[in-house]
């Protein structure tokens, strides 16, 4: 999923457009784990709106997450432990895996 040519910048980009510009080497080993049972009792769910890659979503009122797209800033864990239920355990992907920025 890479758009090497770029996308007209004045257009409103979708998140899929944006993540499509990035290069990911997906780590098959989970580097984010979420105790989604705990999430059921979490009213605030700040992970749903702070993540710049929207890794976290609700599906049939259940929290689901897809680490592909993760830009490894760890913000989900910070907010989850701050006003959520401390259900997210975030780590770096294994060496060389995950996102690679060509500009940065």
């Amino acid at each position: 999923m890479s758009s090497q040519e770029g996308i007209p910048a004045e257009r409103k980009l979708s998140l899929a457009d944006r993540l499509g510009l990035l290069q990911f080497d997906v780590d098959a080993q989970p580097f984010i784990t979420v105790d989604t049972n705990t999430c059921r009792s979490c009213e605030k769910k700040p992970c749903l709106y702070v993540c710049p890659a929207s890794v976290y979503r609700l599906e049939n009122s259940e929290l689901v997450y897809n680490t592909e797209g993760c830009m490894e800033m760890g913000v989900c864990q910070i907010v989850c432990h701050s006003i959520g239920k401390a259900a997210i355990k975030w780590n770096y992907p294994r060496g060389g895996k995950g996102v690679t920025f060509k500009f940065g």
């Binding site: 040519e5 770029g6 996308i7 007209p8 910048a9 004045e10 409103k12 980009l13 457009d17 944006r18 993540l19 510009l21 990035l22 710049p52 890659a53 830009m71 800033m73 760890g74 913000v75 920025f101 060509k102 500009f103 940065g104």
Partner: peptide
């Protein structure tokens, strides 16, 4: 970011350009 890019004082700078990378950082 969408709002910022669409602002009338910012949009003319990027018009016709190509978005090449999206990134985020703490």
């Amino acid at each position: 970011l969408d709002e910022f890019k669409a602002h009338p004082s910012i949009e003319p700078f990027i018009e016709g350009g190509k978005a090449k990378e999206y990134s985020a950082h703490l």
